[in-house]
Computed example of a mutant assay.
Amino acid sequence: MPDHGLILLLAETGGPPVATWCVVGGRIDALPPGQDLAGWRGRITALVPAAQAPVLALAAQETATADQALAVARLAAQDHALAPGSTVVAGRDDGQIVATLVAPQALAAWQAQVVALTGRDADALLPAGLLLPPPPAGTVHRASLGRGMVLARTDQAAFVAEAPLWQALVPDGAQVVDWAEGDLGPRLLQAHAAPWLDMQGGAAGHAPCPVRRLARLAVLVSVLALAVPVAQIVRWRVEAARIAAASVAQVRARFPAVTDLASAEQAVNAARLRAQAGADGWAPPTAALWQALRAAPGVRLAGLQHTAQGSLRFTLAAREIAPVDAVLLALQRDGWRLAQPPAPVRDGAGIVATITMRAP
């Protein structure tokens, strides 16, 4: 058993790990957040976020082999894979066959996280959900690790404990058993010493299981293939609602009559139009015009007017049309809106063009 090394619980969005443990002399200790991990000696085990690597479990009993169960999982994964090119990796955990889908690009991203933290690749990658021991039927094991990653495991799956997955995979009336992080020490040591499966390609040997229950693995693959994207969509909607509420609150601080996002947008647009029509609306477009003219010394400003509607009307003069076009293109690249100008007029030895410009 490796008696030195690191165990990292990777974050879903990269960056610092959700939790880190060190293994010293066969004992495991949690490391404080922000600990420098570069150059750490010993074996490195990385736990992949449960939201990105849900696990399917099948009770191992009588006649069929783990290879047969894995074949069923692969057939189901061809129709319901979470990412193109995904493969199925399987292993054994306390009388169960456990399997998860692995996409090459995800594997590379997880290893890149580990390299950024420690300076080298992980020796083993496995789903974080397997830290929970397999429960009996009708029971759900649940644990919160590090900075709020909540794991769940039933007798058929290990996954992130978010509402869509919980509703899809936890049977009604199931008994929930919460595990403290400190109680998972033996499982952490086991994951470090002899992972139940390694997502880099570790596969199960032969493990018997009943043929009549193999089809349940295919059903679970289908459920997870649907539930994981649904969970992500729910996250996005919750985050969008939070941002919208914060935006409305900021606008309401200035315009108390605002009640929702639509009225907030109307209030902001009305205020912007008023500002553009007043003295505050003169400086930004004029400064942008001066900046564009500085890059075109062959163009002269022949007229300038700020209208009551908040637009800037100006006349440019030059010997040729190309320098005038260069000024207009520079303004458009900076986001300013230009009304369709009339055809340039040749005035004596030069070109004159009048343009109307509005704020982005």
Rank of each mutant, 00 (worst) to 15 (best):
G91Y: 01
D121V: 05
W110R: 02
P342T: 05
M357H: 01
G182N: 04
D325Y: 12
A109V: 00
M149N: 05
T356V: 13
A81S: 14
L145H: 01
R187W: 11
A124P: 05
R120V: 06
A283T: 12
I355C: 11
Q250P: 08
A322G: 12
G310D: 12
A83K: 06
D94M: 11
R274A: 11
V228A: 05
G5Y: 01
M357A: 09
Q340V: 12
E162Q: 07
S263M: 09
Q105V: 09
L101K: 10
P16H: 02
V299L: 11
I351R: 05
W282D: 04
R358M: 12
D325H: 15
D155I: 02
A193Q: 08
I97F: 06
L145E: 00
M1T: 09
Q68V: 11
L31S: 11
G303Q: 11
G182S: 07
G182R: 03
P297Y: 07
L329H: 15
A225R: 02
G173D: 06
A318T: 08
Q113V: 00
Q156A: 14
A292M: 02
R294M: 10
T118K: 01
E239N: 13
P54Q: 04
P134N: 09
G5T: 00
P49N: 00
G335A: 07
A318M: 08
G14E: 03
P104Y: 10
P229Y: 12
A292N: 04
P285Y: 03
V258W: 04
Q167T: 14
A81V: 10
L125A: 01
W290I: 09
L75K: 15
W40P: 06
T20W: 01
L273E: 07
A106V: 00
V234H: 14
M199A: 07
I351A: 09
Q332R: 07
P195M: 06
V114T: 05
